[in-house]
Write a protein that binds this DNA or RNA. Structure first.
Lengths: 275, 275
DNA sequence: CCGTGGCGATACCTTGGCGGTATGGATGAC
DNA sequence: GTCATCCATACCGCCAAGGTATCGCCACGG
């Protein structure tokens, strides 16, 4: 196979995202002509036209669309390789656990204590992120993450279930559903819902980036949200929660990379599921 | 992140596999000194010692082991990107379906007919492989594969179940279990079992590469094997099958890449599950 | 203890190709 | 028609990848 270098893939991704050679070159920190040449060379070697260029506009061809997706994936894999290698070289191993603030259903304290008491335990760093937690595990920035099934995409990850709980809907006071003791998914149809970063493709809704923002938007009557009941236990004033009887239960899972061979990750998982 | 090129990863993988700079250089078609230099440069940029070298032997360090695994994965991703892009560029699309000879439980004829009758159907190439079918889908050599769950590792693949069947054990005539009408998994404990190429990590057993070889080895009394009952229907002389009552049923699945956006793959899957 | 052979590292040179600047050529806006 | 925009082409300089020759180290045979 004619060798394709990561540099060429990075160049292609930049152009494909910008759809503009000049801006892409600027983003890459090189001049435009070498970029044009590099892309043309890549196309010749692959024997495929990746971009339709007129002097007015640049478009991706269908194979170009494919390469954009696949090249991003390949570049992620290269980055993950480097990160995991560097991590493996650390003399003092540590674990990084990615989680959403408040997204541990109250279990984390026990898990951390139990892990810390196990032989060979290493320090655990907590990385609080709203979205991107699965991506962090995939590319090696985190060793473990607390995710929710089915909300998160667990592709490429191994996981163990920690806890399943029913879901509730968060409503502003005075909402038309606030008088009901319980609601069903059908009642929520048409209501504006949040879309978290890194949700599975196909999920639509109002983009939100953190939970305070979400609570604020609900309080203002702009959104409602379905969340695990443990999240709905302590709410700021102006918000109420109601059980959603027919919502799929949310399962809190502990996830880690399928490629992990780390003794520390295995020990942490053991501690987490032991209870 | 300091850019690492695929060339450097290929060089590292070659050295890590050969554990010998001279042979690795020969395999790569370059001279030994540039290879030594490239590896050293890679180590400096990553800030990690990957290889312990004495003038007598070369060993992988623990981070080197990690990089070997991860670099292979990353190189596979790059290759898959190129292959899928080229495939997408073909003016006359085709589908490639990887399957094990006889491993279709008799369903394939119907599926192919139904797909061929669907609008927009394209020619389907069949790739008969014993192992490696999942890998073919992952790296783009095949668009679809018939696999068995839980025997195959479906990581990175989407799949739909086609058919579930109970399993039987294949025995040579005169085997100690041959007189029994049925057996249980416990009865098979300690018996020599086959290990197919590309089995999930952790599965142990006598390596076999094709089904004729397997049948022959069973006939010779060297092995026994648990297989789906459709495989055990027509057996060469000297072999008998007995139901294994408590074996997990084997599910024949149709699998394809999670990253596939191909209209043709989607149509084939629809045709396959429609019945 | 001293050759000898095997192997990776070092030194030094050559060259391909990557990136830069200048400019051309096509196209749409007015 | 004129101008602006934007990608392609032409040409140049330089770095780094690859080649050859050689060194230094170590295991092994005698």
């Amino acid at each position: 196979m004619d060798d394709v270098e990561t540099r060429e893939l990075r160049y292609f991704v930049a152009v494909a995202e910008e759809l503009h050679f000049g801006r892409a070159a600027q983003r890459l920190g090189i001049a435009q002509p070498p970029l044009s040449r590099a892309i043309r060379l890549l196309e010749r070697r692959m024997g495929v036209t990746l971009l339709d260029r007129t002097s007015r506009a640049v478009h991706l061809t269908p194979p170009g669309e494919v390469l954009l997706t696949e090249a991003r994936r390949a570049l992620d894999a290269v980055e993950a390789a480097i990160r995991r290698t560097r991590k493996a070289a650390r003399t003092t191993p540590r674990l990084t656990l990615a989680l959403k603030p408040g997204g541990d259903a109250g279990l984390l304290r026990t898990i951390l204590d139990r892990y810390a008491a196990s032989p060979g335990a290493v320090p655990v760093d907590l990385a609080f992120r709203v979205g991107e937690r699965a991506a962090m595990v995939r590319d090696g920035r985190a060793d473990l993450a607390l995710l929710h099934r089915p909300q998160n995409d667990l592709t490429g990850l191994d996981s163990d279930d920690l806890h399943t709980e029913d879901q509730v809907v968060l409503l502003p006071e005075g909402h038309r559903l606030a008088e009901r003791a319980t609601v069903s998914m059908a009642d929520l149809h048409g209501e504006p819902m949040p879309r978290w970063p890194e949700a599975r493709p196909g999920v639509t809704g109002h983009p939100v980036t953190d939970s305070n923002q979400l609570l604020h938007l609900i309080q203002l009557g702009r959104l409602i949200a379905v969340v695990p009941e443990s999240v709905g236990e302590y709410l700021p004033p102006g918000l109420i929660s109601r059980p959603v009887l027919d919502a799929d239960p949310a399962t809190l899972v502990l996830a880690w990379s399928q490629t992990s061979t780390s003794r520390e990750v295995a020990a942490f998982v053991r501690a987490a599921v032991a209870g």
